[in-house]
């Protein structure tokens, strides 16, 4: 079957099977920033924006996004700024979980969330095994302008 999706502001017609998962379809079409971490919607690594809101793409049928808008880290202009700050803190390490974290954090910036406790709660679903989170928080605080 075919679906029509806007991905990173580009209109696309994608050929999918009815039981295809969004994550697999995005990777098949070359959006490699969307990565599989856990298969169970627990790690946040495959996070993309669906009509502007973060979702785990491993837990959504591709057929459901017909007529909707998907944004990955490649389509987020603010991603580069956050990436730079994360890099300056050395908070990337293996980088596998970073795109999902960036997508979610850029979304928090749009919501103007500035309290660190609230930020941590909102990002609790973005797991990271390398950094221990501390460096990420140093960077995210700067990016969001967290009030101290």
């Amino acid at each position: 079957m075919k679906i029509n999706v806007t991905i990173n502001n580009e209109k696309k017609e994608l050929e999918i099977a009815p039981d295809d998962i969004l994550l697999d379809v995005l990777r098949r079409y070359g959006y490699h920033s969307v990565r599989r971490g856990c298969d169970t919607g627990m790690c946040g690594i495959c996070t993309v924006l669906l009509d502007g809101k973060p979702v785990p793409s491993c837990s959504i049928f591709a057929a459901r996004v017909d007529g909707h808008e998907i944004t990955t880290v490649e389509g987020l202009p603010e991603a580069k700024e956050l990436a730079k700050i994360l890099a300056e803190e050395g908070a990337d390490q293996c980088g596998f979980c970073s795109p999902g974290l960036i997508v979610n954090t850029v979304y928090l910036k749009k919501l103007k969330i500035k309290k660190i406790e609230e930020v941590k709660i909102k990002l609790i679903g973005n797991l990271c095994r390398c950094t221990g989170y501390v460096g990420q928080h140093r960077a995210i605080e700067k990016f969001l302008g967290v009030e101290k």
């Binding site: 490699h32 880290v73 990436a83 050395g90 990337d92 980088g95």
Partner: peptide, 22 residues
């Protein structure tokens, strides 16, 4: 020097760099 990793931006912004990507 506290410089960022050479591959930092590539990793953070989702370049196809891991085994399954390549």
């Amino acid at each position: 020097r506290k410089i960022p990793k050479k591959d930092a931006l590539g990793l953070l912004l989702g370049k196809p760099v891991y085994t399954d990507d390549l």
